[in-house]
Design a protein around this nucleic acid. Structure first.
Lengths: 148, 148
DNA sequence: CCTACAACCTGTAGCCACTACAGCTTCAAG
DNA sequence: CTTGAAGCTGTAGTGGCTACAGGTTGTAGG
């Protein structure tokens, strides 16, 4: 009997996928774009991953889950590989991304307000002769805010 | 002397672009995917738009600005062309989109919280030996919330 | 009437971050 | 040794544009 999967040190791509929650195709994609280094291969040319790969892929997944762009992750990985790490740069990337996320939230909130107004008018007791949703889209002057 | 541009009833694509704030290439794209009907052509095969096109494109732009998918806009346009309009369906599309926007906001807020925590720790008075941003990304257990 | 040049035309490729095949080969359990 | 899951490469598709390349047309000034 072989050791349990969670204990094996050298694993095929499917097991790496299970452990990290990243799909097999996505792992190969990350390799292709240079986020994940090319692993060793079996005699039959299949990828064999070690502990370092698991950790690196977990890093990538976490960063992607937080919405970092692949390009930013490339930089963050490079920084984390650097001995005398440039923490300033890592912090700048995180701060910039935080700004982007906040901008996106602000924009979505403005959309939300406008959509809520449109949808509410329509579901409310407006005369059914014309559809309020269609009307609102046809005529921008119905908008309360023109920021969008 | 010709009438001023804003008064002309039949205009080329560039003028339509100016009036609606939609780029020329995007207008051609909308035609290609069937949102905007094919206009008449000049003798030299150039597109000539009338008032109806301006209104339809304004509708499309407004809907896109509100984040509706092209596919939803296709349906909304079909509904608006229908005499006995199915307002229910239009309302359902708007309501569904509002839900999506709210979901997106919720997800982004959770990201924002996590990112703010990471960025703040790093800019705060943490010992400089290891970078908190890199650490946080490397080790998911540092997260307070595991929802993402 | 002619020239110059902006605006137009079609068609194709690129962007991001995957995802989904098609058509093979390899691995491992029974 | 057989079978079937899992692996392999390479390509195309997603959404909603955007950006060319390489040509044609429209129009204002001279």
């Amino acid at each position: 009997m072989r050791p349990a999967k969670t204990l094996e040190r050298v694993v095929p791509i499917g097991t790496l996928a299970e452990r990290t929650g990243v799909k097999v195709e996505t792992i190969r994609y990350y390799e292709q774009v240079g986020l994940l280094p090319e692993p060793e291969r079996s005699e039959g040319n299949q990828r064999r991953y070690g502990r370092a790969h698991v950790e690196r892929l977990a890093f990538i997944k976490h960063a992607r889950d937080l919405g970092f762009a692949v390009e930013s992750i490339r930089t963050l990985l490079r920084l984390s590989d650097t001995p005398g790490m440039a923490c300033d740069e890592a912090h700048a990337i995180a701060a910039e991304h935080l700004e982007e996320v906040r901008d996106k939230i602000a924009r979505l909130r403005s959309l939300e307000a406008e959509l809520a107004r449109i949808a509410t008018v329509c579901s409310g007791g407006v005369a059914a002769s014309d559809c309020a949703v269609i009307e609102a889209l046809a005529d921008h002057s119905h908008c309360e805010h023109h920021s969008h």
